[in-house]
Simulated assay, not measured.
Amino acid sequence: MPQAPGRRPGDPAPGRRFGRFTGTDALAVVLYVLLPLAAILLPLDRLAWLRANPLAGSYLLNLAVYGVVFIVAAIAARAYFARDVRILGTRPWFTLGILPLLLIAMLVVTAILVALSGGIQVSQNQESIEGLARGVPWWLTAPLLVVLGPFVEEFIFRHLMIGKLSLYVNKWFCYALSVVLFASLHLLSSDAFTLQALAPYVGLGGVLVFAYAWTGNNLAFSVSLHALKNLLSVVLLYTLDLSSLQP
């Protein structure tokens, strides 16, 4: 059977923006949920090295979890991601120009939501990231926060939860679900699950959903925007004394 013009081997079928869920998709989600639980349940605190180096141990655990899920997610989304990169490549100046504008919009939306919620409340997730910055060099945290994390989270919360789930349910429900779960899962380990702690992640998730949908469900674009935001965070973490900025 001849291929459609411009279609390459491995591309999704023509005429359909997304295929159905696959076994590899499911495996990535299962690993994303179960690996952190396994890390919590395993008696790792008995290891003398981890007790002596808690920050390094936390970093290595996160690197292992996100590294494994990243490999599976990359395999599952390789055709979609490669195609989306080619689409962005047809208008590179537009892509490079709109990314910083959306980053600014993300910061503004987040600031507004934080103000409306009653002010800043640093979540345990943010405290953990800042702790890593104090004990782990930037060239180790950057790959985790700028490469692995954005790809894994955009794959699950945008590509699967919107791109594929919208084949079965209303897309607006998918948008809302993506924002709510994305924000909530960043606070699962927090003792203070409050609107103030949730607000920054709602702002981040909302703009990422908008960017993903606005670009025609382009996974490469939402990953790039998420990575850019995290890159800014890494730069700030390693150049500013954030403890002096906390209330």
Rank of each mutant, 00 (worst) to 15 (best):
S123I: 12
W138K: 00
L177M: 13
V69A: 10
P143R: 03
R86E: 14
S178N: 07
S189L: 09
L101S: 01
L42Q: 05
V223M: 10
R86V: 09
L63N: 04
V169S: 06
L228I: 07
T22Q: 01
L195K: 08
Y238C: 06
L208N: 13
L107I: 13
I162E: 07
L47I: 15
N62C: 03
N170P: 05
F210V: 15
V169Q: 02
L34M: 14
F21V: 05
I71T: 14
R78C: 07
D241V: 03
H159M: 13
R16A: 14
M1P: 06
I112V: 15
E127P: 05
Q246C: 02
L41Q: 14
N125E: 06
F70R: 08
A197P: 00
D84L: 10
L145R: 08
A38S: 13
Y238I: 12
A213H: 11
A4F: 01
L60P: 02
A13Y: 06
L60W: 12
D191C: 05
K229A: 13
P100S: 00
I129M: 13
N53E: 08
A227K: 05
L101D: 05
L35G: 09
G119R: 08
S189I: 11
W138F: 04
L113A: 10
M161I: 10
I162H: 00
V152M: 09
V152G: 09
K171M: 08
I104L: 15
G57R: 05
Y212N: 02
G118L: 01
I71C: 11
D45T: 14
R91P: 04
V209D: 03
N230W: 07
G216V: 05
V29H: 07
A77T: 15
W138C: 06
G206F: 11
Q196K: 14
R16S: 13
V114M: 00
S117W: 03
Y212G: 04
N170M: 02
F21Q: 08
P2K: 04
V69P: 08
A115T: 10
L60S: 07
T110S: 10
T22V: 02
R16L: 12
S123M: 12
L144I: 02
A115Y: 08
E154W: 03
A52Q: 12
G131V: 00
A4K: 00
A197W: 05
R17M: 08
P92Y: 11
